[in-house]
């Protein structure tokens, strides 16, 4: 089983992104569930969502405490939230980062095994005219982990948000930089 935690802000589509990952997995014949952290999702406030993926039915309906992967939809969240809490050793970090960011400057904990960097905000602004980063982050996630197929995610993204977002997904997939740290 793979466990994922997404960190975003209200209005970024964090919960929906989590649902798309699950939907893609189910389309592929697998199982998954996603649970949003239960709070009041005010625009701009930190929110999180939990995802589990597996090849067999997933029984626990609990939050994720030791994720295999953390997706951070807004880099500035690192100031407010410990996004690495419980990250499994050798786990994945999918980070929305400024263009030209260097891993050495990111002050990552030792638990991170693979980091995926993408300027999701920049890509989203250019293509959508607004900093809604979930689609771009999904592209980076798929590229970094390969846990679900890009085409399945793309079809759902298009279904929910239209062609422009599906293109953004592909663009982010191409642009994302996967760095293995060990």
């Amino acid at each position: 089983m793979k466990e994922i935690r997404l960190h975003g802000r209200g209005g970024m589509g964090t919960v929906k992104a989590a649902e798309i990952i699950v939907t893609a997995k189910v389309l592929e014949g697998g199982y998954g569930n996603s649970i949003p952290f239960f709070g009041f999702e005010r625009q701009g406030a930190p929110v999180s969502s939990f995802v589990r993926l597996d090849e067999r039915p997933i029984r626990p309906k609990t939050q994720v405490y030791t994720p295999d992967c953390v997706i951070v939809l807004d880099g500035t969240l690192r100031k407010a939230v410990d996004v690495f809490e419980g990250l499994k050793d050798g786990g994945w970090l999918i980070l929305n980062s400024e263009p030209g960011s260097r891993v050495e400057d990111l002050d990552l904990p030792r638990s991170v095994g693979t980091v995926v960097l993408v300027d999701a905000t920049g890509l989203a602004l250019r293509r959508l005219g607004k900093p809604i980063t979930n689609t771009a982050m999904l592209g980076a996630f798929v590229k970094g982990t390969g846990w679900v197929e890009l085409s399945d995610v793309a079809s759902k993204v298009e279904e929910f948000w239209g062609r422009e977002n599906a293109d953004l997904l592909g663009e982010a997939f191409e642009a994302a930089q996967v760095i293995r740290l060990r």
């Binding site: 989590a18 649902e19 189910v26 998954g32 569930n33 996603s34 649970i35 239960f38 309906k61």
Partner: peptide, 12 residues
């Protein structure tokens, strides 16, 4: 059914 744990949980 349990609020949030099921009501807001997405699955197959």
């Amino acid at each position: 059914y349990d609020g949030f744990y099921l009501s807001h949980m997405t699955e197959r």
